[in-house]
């Protein structure tokens, strides 16, 4: 891991633990989450395996069912710093980002009872709340969405419950697939999600032909679909 070189000798213990956990991961040994501190998890952007997904989903369920404040605080430590990164990447200043993070986390608390771990991972659910909040706050627009009870809605021939099977493993596979994307494709994917710009502007800024931007995005999505075992 490149980042190890950035640590001072004083933090050797932490570096050692990180190196050890990286070694275990590279050996295919999944390290239990119980022995990691919240700080370590927050520091390391790469550790989101199925155990971690399960842990976050369970925390969110506890907040919804039991109004569990400790579970909520644990979710805060995981999501708040990531949400802030997300908002800053979208061009929000630090103070403004904190305010939106606050809104999003309060919404997480209030709406947690509607979270269904069979339908989405906690990260996905929080992402959609943050996405909608920033459309509301930053663009002052509404987000048109389907109404699941609409009689005009064409029903899904596949039972959603069948699609939810092994969601946690799917989430882990998705994380691995993103990590194995060629860097230029991964970067374009992040830009498509986290920069509120048309592809033509992204292309001009990066000195890339528009066709290249579009084809990299398509290639990235095709690789992810393949990794997820579909199409």
């Amino acid at each position: 891991m490149v980042e190890i070189g950035l640590y001072s000798p004083a933090s050797f213990g932490r570096v050692f633990r990180k190196a050890q956990s990286a070694l275990q991961r590279s050996n295919g040994v999944e390290r239990g989450h119980a022995d990691r501190t919240a700080t370590e998890r927050t520091m390391d952007r790469h550790i989101v395996d199925s155990a971690e997904t399960e842990r976050l989903n369970a925390l969110l369920v506890r907040v919804g069912r039991e109004r569990d404040r400790e579970a909520f605080i644990a979710l805060f430590h995981h999501f708040a710093p990531r949400l802030k990164s997300y908002l800053q990447r979208l061009g929000v200043d630090a103070g403004g980002a904190d305010e939106i993070v606050q809104d999003v986390m309060v919404s997480v608390w209030r709406r947690a009872d509607s979270y269904d771990p069979a339908l989405s991972a906690a990260g996905t659910w929080v992402f959609t709340i943050a996405r909608n909040r920033r459309i509301d706050v930053l663009r002052r627009e509404r987000r048109p969405e389907i109404d699941p009870d609409d009689p005009a809605l064409v029903p899904d021939p596949v039972d959603p419950a069948d699609r939810a099977v092994e969601l946690e493993q799917d989430t882990e596979r998705l994380h691995r697939a993103i990590r194995t994307l060629p860097p230029e494709q991964a970067e374009l994917l992040r830009m498509a999600y986290f920069e509120d710009k048309p592809h033509s502007v992204i292309a001009a800024e990066r000195n890339l032909p528009l066709g290249t931007v579009k084809s990299r995005l398509r290639l990235a999505l095709a690789r992810l679909r393949k990794a997820m075992g579909e199409e």
């Binding site: 952007r45 990260g123 994917l189």
Partner: peptide, 10 residues
């Protein structure tokens, strides 16, 4: 779900 995974990796 991809957005959620990218957020987790931020």
């Amino acid at each position: 779900a991809l957005g959620g995974a990218l957020l987790d990796q931020m």
